[in-house]
Design a protein around this nucleic acid. Structure first.
Length: 417
DNA sequence: TCTGGGGTCCTAGGACCC
DNA sequence: TCTGGGGTCCTAGGACCC
C-alpha cells in the first residue's frame, strides 16, 4: 500500500510553530515579492482567500478580518521540512520525499487495522516532534492515496484508508480537476467531452486515452483503477537543471540595472551549484516583460551558451550569463522578470579536465571555498562580486518576513521565564 | 499600483546516419 | 515512369506538480 503524508497548510503551520499567537487566526503566507497567497490557514480559506490569489485582490478581506499576511521564509520551511522527512524511516524503509511538504511511504502490510494504526501514529508523532500537523492517505496506488488524502483533508478526518473496493464510490465524488496529474488544460479538454468525475475518467477506455492524451494520462487512469503504474522513486536521479529567477518589485527598463540583476542571479545560482556539488555544462539567461499588462509591448527572450568545461566557478558563470544577456536583451521594453538557468548538471567530482583550459581549476576551487565560507559566516553581502552590485529597484519585496528561527544563531527564538 | 519560483516528464518534428 | 526502411539524437513546446 502507498501512503502519502502531506503537511497541512505547510508554510502557515511552520510559522505557527514559532508564533502560537497565529493559532486560530486567519494567516496567509505570500510568494516572493509579497505577490500571491501560497499557503493559507483554514481560517483564511474559510474567508475565501483563493490559492494563488494576488494580495491586492484580497486586500479588503485582509483589512476587514485582520488576516495576517507573512512574507515567505523559505529557509525556515526547508529546515522544518527536513525535520519532518527525517521521521519517516521508522515506519517504512521505502520513503520518497515528493515535495517540500509531502512524502510517499510504501507499507507492506495491507491489513486495515495495521494501516489505521500506522497512519495515526505518523500523525501524532510528527505533530509532537515537530509541531507540524499532517494528513495521511493510504491506498493501492499513489494516485488513489492522493485522492484519499484529499478526502481526509476535506472532511477533517486527518487520515483515510482507501481499500480498492471503496474506490469507485469516492472517485464518483472527486472532480477531474482534483485528480493528481490532471491539470487545468486536461480538465477543460475532458469537460468538453463530458468527463467530469474521476470515476468517469477511470471508466474511459485506455486505448482512447492513449491515443488522445498520451501515456502519462493513461498511467493516471490505470492508477485510478488500482493498478500501480507510478513506482516509488526513493533514490531520485541527480538534478538536471537549476534556476535562480526573480520578478522585480518595479519594472526595469535600464540595461545596466537589468545586467546587474542577471549578474547577481548568476552569482546565486553558482553558489547553489557548489552547495550541491554540481557543475553545469551550459547557461541560459531569460528576460521577460509583464504578461499581466497586455497593453504594454511584450518580449520574452532567452539565450543559451555552453561552457568549455562544466563549471560552478562564479566568475565564469557570471561571464557567460552576461554574454547571453547581451545577446538576448532588447531595448525599449519594461522588464518584470529575469533569470539564470544552469543546464545539464553533472557531479562536480566527475568533470573531465581540459588541456587548454583558461581557468586554473585548482585555484578557482580554493577561491570559491573561501568565498562560500565567508558568506556562510558573515552573510551574503559581507563579500561579493562587484558585478552583482548595489541593490537597486529590481530587488524583491519582503516586508513581513519572520526570523529564521532554526538556521541562524542571531535569529533563534528567545524564551522569557 | 499591486499577479512566485523551482522543478519534471512527454511528444512531435527535424536533422542526420546507414 | 519508377524514389525504402530503420534508426538515433536534439530541441522546443506543452503539460503537469508543489
Amino acid at each position: 500500500m502507498y501512503a502519502i503524508v502531506d503537511c497541512n497548510n505547510f508554510f502557515v503551520s511552520c510559522e505557527r510553530v514559532f508564533n502560537p499567537r497565529l493559532e486560530g487566526r486567519p494567516v496567509v503566507v505570500l510568494s516572493n515579492n509579497d505577490g500571491c497567497a501560497v499557503s493559507r490557514s483554514d481560517e483564511a480559506k474559510a474567508l475565501g482567500v483563493p490559492m494563488g490569489a494576488p494580495r491586492f485582490k484580497f486586500r479588503d478581506l485582509e483589512k476587514r478580518h485582520g488576516i495576517v499576511c507573512l512574507s515567505s521564509n523559505f529557509e525556515l520551511y526547508a529546515d522544518m521540512s527536513r525535520r519532518v522527512m527525517s521521521l519517516f524511516d521508522q515506519w517504512s524503509p521505502d520513503v520518497e520525499p515528493y515535495s517540500i511538504d509531502e512524502a510517499f511511504l510504501w507499507l507492506q502490510n495491507p491489513s486495515r487495522d495495521y494501516l489505521e494504526k500506522i497512519a495515526r501514529e505518523i500523525q501524532t508523532t510528527v505533530k509532537q516532534w515537530t509541531g507540524i500537523p499532517v494528513s495521511v492517505g493510504v491506498s493501492t496506488t499513489k494516485t488513489l492515496s492522493k485522492a484519499a488524502n484529499d478526502f481526509a483533508k476535506r472532511n477533517k478526518l486527518g487520515i483515510k484508508i482507501l481499500p480498492i473496493a471503496e474506490a469507485p464510490e469516492m472517485l464518483s465524488r472527486l472532480h477531474a480537476k482534483d485528480i493528481w496529474g490532471i491539470g487545468r488544460k486536461l480538465t477543460e479538454w475532458l469537460g468538453e467531452r463530458d468527463i467530469q468525475t474521476a470515476l468517469e475518467l477511470s471508466n474511459t477506455p485506455d486505448r482512447w486515452i492513449r491515443k488522445h492524451l498520451g501515456v502519462t494520462v493513461e498511467r493516471t487512469v490505470m492508477e485510478l483503477r488500482g493498478i500501480p503504474c507510478i513506482p516509488m522513486n526513493c533514490h531520485p536521479g541527480a538534478q538536471r537543471n537549476m534556476v535562480h529567477a526573480r520578478s522585480f518589485s518595479h519594472r526595469v527598463d535600464s540595461k545596466d540595472e537589468l545586467r546587474t540583476a542577471v549578474a547577481y542571479y548568476a552569482e546565486r545560482v553558482a553558489a547553489k551549484l557548489r552547495r550541491e556539488k554540481l557543475a553545469a555544462q551550459a547557461a541560459c539567461v531569460f528576460l521577460s516583460t509583464d504578461y499581466h499588462k497586455p497593453q504594454d509591448s511584450q518580449y520574452h527572450g532567452s539565450e543559451t551558451l555552453a561552457f568549455q568545461v562544466p563549471t560552478n566557478f562564479t566568475p565564469e558563470v557570471v561571464e557567460y550569463a552576461l554574454k547571453a544577456f547581451d545577446q538576448t536583451f532588447r531595448s525599449g521594453f519594461r522588464y518584470k522578470k529575469a533569470g539564470v538557468m544552469m543546464l545539464e548538471l553533472v557531479p562536480q567530482g566527475e568533470v573531465q579536465g581540459e588541456l587548454f583550459d583558461k581557468v586554473d581549476r585548482f585555484k578557482a576551487k580554493k577561491l570559491m571555498s573561501a568565498l562560500d565560507i565567508m558568506q556562510a559566516r558573515h552573510g551574503e553581502r559581507a563579500l561579493h562580486f562587484a558585478m552583482g552590485g548595489a541593490q537597486d529597484g529590481w530587488q524583491s519585496k519582503r516586508e513581513f518576513r519572520t526570523p529564521r528561527y532554526t538556521t541562524k544563531w542571531n535569529e533563534i527564538p528567545v524564551a522569557r521565564a
